[in-house]
């Protein structure tokens, strides 16, 4: 008995974690892949095997292709702009005075507000008739925008909200990266007649590249899954202009009850995210500098 226990103790110890992981991660993923080859309406007892029909349907569905395009546009601009702005902001406010300490805290605050509240808040601000943003534009004599109401600008309005929400967190992580650079390096560089730009390009940037790389990958994974802002602010509209992959999956799965079809879109998302994750671990081990 005791020998039996001795042998299985390690397995018993990790069992709770494994059970949770299997039950809530592995099993749903497997079930999703299984469903993606079937047609099922959530209620009927039999699931009909349809092979790759769901995927074929996706590839021919303009709405799906539009949502895929929107997701890529959203990801490209929100991640790109967030990273660049966060880097500039971090370089600017990374100073040890009380004032800049306050600024660092202030920039971070959107991160701790619920995304739902942020979405509501920005809806008010972006209201074409009564919103503060248009009022401000008018004050300075600039042309007003339709914001969320026009298919031309709706996606970019959502991108703006996403940037506003994530920039503080990104800035803080970059500041942490900047502060981990030994100050002696800059003194040595000063004695080496290095200009500010050279010091940035040859010392600062290479030293924080692991941090930046981590942030970019995390932001990519996060923005491929954008959902709450879209659900609250536009529901994918107007004219599908803000429909993204996860919102598409949600609509087909839980509004139209085409579970098999929605699952096949889910598989596509899974593939994209898996590629990003593998890329992250692969590049992290090779390309980017770690001390």
């Amino acid at each position: 008995m005791s020998r039996w226990l001795e042998r299985f103790r390690p397995y018993l110890m990790v069992a709770p974690a494994i059970i949770v992981f299997v039950l809530f991660f592995i099993y749903p993923i497997g079930y999703m892949i299984y469903l993606s080859f079937h047609e099922w309406d959530f209620i009927s007892p039999d699931k009909q095997f349809v092979g790759l029909d769901n995927f074929a349907g996706l590839s021919e569905h303009p709405e799906f292709l539009k949502s895929l395009e929107n997701t890529f546009v959203f990801t490209f601009f929100s991640v790109g702009i967030t990273t660049v702005l966060a880097l500039l902001l971090a370089l600017w406010i990374n100073r040890p005075t009380r004032f800049y300490g306050f600024v660092q805290g202030a920039v971070f605050s959107p991160h701790i507000i619920s995304l739902v509240s942020i979405a509501m808040l920005w809806m008010w601000l972006m209201d074409p008739q009564y919103g503060l943003l248009n009022w401000g534009l008018e004050m300075f004599g600039l042309p007003q925008s339709e914001w969320l109401a026009s298919p031309e600008t709706a996606l970019y309005s959502i991108i703006l909200v996403a940037i506003w929400k994530s920039i503080g967190f990104n800035t803080l992580i970059i500041i942490a990266g900047l502060q981990s650079i030994p100050p002696h390096l800059y003194e040595a560089a000063a004695l080496d007649q290095s200009s500010r730009f050279t010091s940035f390009a040859k010392i600062t940037f290479p030293m924080i590249s692991p941090t930046l790389f981590f942030l970019i990958i995390m932001n990519l994974i996060g923005s491929f899954q954008v959902f709450e802002t879209i659900d609250i602010m536009t529901q994918g509209g107007p004219l599908q202009s803000t429909n993204t992959l996860v919102y598409y999956i949600y609509e087909y799965g839980f509004r139209f009850f085409q579970l098999g079809y929605a699952s096949s879109a889910g598989v596509i998302l899974l593939i994209v995210l898996s590629i990003l994750t593998v890329l992250y671990f692969f590049l992290m081990s090779r390309r980017v500098h770690y001390q």
């Binding site: 030994p182 002696h184 390096l185 003194e187 040595a188 560089a189 000063a190 004695l191 080496d192 007649q193 290095s194 040859k202 010392i203 290479p206 030293m207 500098h289 001390q291």
Partner: peptide, 21 residues
């Protein structure tokens, strides 16, 4: 005169080598 223009070289206690180079 800025440090770079003094024509002075310094060896630091912890060497301060540029780790990425």
């Amino acid at each position: 005169v800025s440090p770079g223009k003094r024509n002075v070289s310094m060896v630091f206690q912890n060497y301060a080598l540029y780790p990425t180079m």
